[in-house]
Design a binder for these strands. Sequence first.
DNA 1: CAGATGGATTGATCTATATCAGTGCATATT
DNA 2: AATATGCACTGATATAGATCAATCCATCTG
Lengths: 230, 230
Amino acid sequence: MGKLANLSCLGCLKRSEIFNSLIESELEMIDCHRVSVNYSAGEILFKQGTPCYNFTCITSGMVKLYIEHDDHHKTIVGLVRPVDYIFVPGAYVDQRHHFTAVACEPTTACLIDTHIFRDLVRLNPQFANDFITKLSNQAIALLDRISGFSHKHIFGRMAETLLYLANHIYKSNIFDLTLSRQDLADLSDMTKESAIRVLKKFKDDGIIRLESNHIEIINTTMLESVSRTG
Amino acid sequence: MGKLANLSCLGCLKRSEIFNSLIESELEMIDCHRVSVNYSAGEILFKQGTPCYNFTCITSGMVKLYIEHDDHHKTIVGLVRPVDYIFVPGAYVDQRHHFTAVACEPTTACLIDTHIFRDLVRLNPQFANDFITKLSNQAIALLDRISGFSHKHIFGRMAETLLYLANHIYKSNIFDLTLSRQDLADLSDMTKESAIRVLKKFKDDGIIRLESNHIEIINTTMLESVSRTG
DNA sequence: CAGATGGATTGATCTATATCAGTGCATATT
DNA sequence: AATATGCACTGATATAGATCAATCCATCTG
């Protein structure tokens, strides 16, 4: 557990902004029903199909969320970085996880009982409102995902993935990837061989700099253009 | 406007179950801020990218929701039948529509101001709860969609579409399709030529009976198997 | 009624990308 | 030190499904 997050939710500097509307007593409710856990890279936080008891708030590290198809295929539907919590749609539907969450790096997370969320939605209208906004954003992200997958070629899809990583995950055009080539492929709906070939093409074309896991986007305009035109 | 829906929300027999938790005064709030509209087949209810002012409740007919990619490609992300309302994620985010809605048949709809929904979420905790459940269900449907699109061949995807139509839309194994072959293709992420070939294959294999727009699923087990194995 | 329009259908061809089958390299294990 | 394991990478091949090009048929239009 990170030093900044260990005492109580009330003074926590690693608190997701979803909790901003909560009053002191409500934060205490959460505080009484949470645990903080450390995960090593590669460890599963929860697995698709299992019952869901918690909302998971990532306080350090990074987590990948993926849908498992058959044995060897998966699709990464999102990456979660601090400070954000993992949206668990099953909590309000069938009490099952609809995707698997795995740590990509050493990660710490606060687990909060789903019942507390339900209670807070009832108690605090502003919290309910913020929560709906969050769910809506996730739905839009999924729609964008579907939009990107259909009728776009591998170059366009990988370009989209790189822009997503730069703009939303690492928040810089230079970053050290903590994802494998397979992960990049699972994010872009292609095989790892194709992912490798596309990255090489981008490198040869001078769109990115690439040395093992160090990536630098040199020509953002070009990458955006590729992402659009496919 | 249908006879059953025309007087007031209070006695309306075409009311979506999302409104069940509302008390009389809250239903009156909705009643004062709604309009009922008729659409012919092919008419647009709202278009992707335009501002969204309303939640749309379908009281008769059927509506297809699709994401527009480039000029000629689209993906149908959902069909809506009575009585259900159209989930509009932009209402809580950017006040924009993220997909287009078009009537597949003659359709009537009640349009309800999004602000009323926001107010009701604040006023009525149970309504907020039900609304979140609805959003969660939609998110799960989108996840299933992504899951089906990736790493499944056209036969599997079309099988999935037919099962979806039978189980969730027409609620029978025999139905008269009010969708075109192109629509079936847009639901299954393939070209209309492929859609036609796959349907013919299913027909030849004795899985379905097919005469122009009349479809009967003869061998559900087989279809489910194809949908799973791809 | 003739012609136009648009969906459904079929066949032939093309190509993007998966699959297969390796090699090389780094790290972990005994 | 020797071996095993796993990821990154590359080239050759196969193929699913798109694209292209017709034809057919029903409905709409002037």
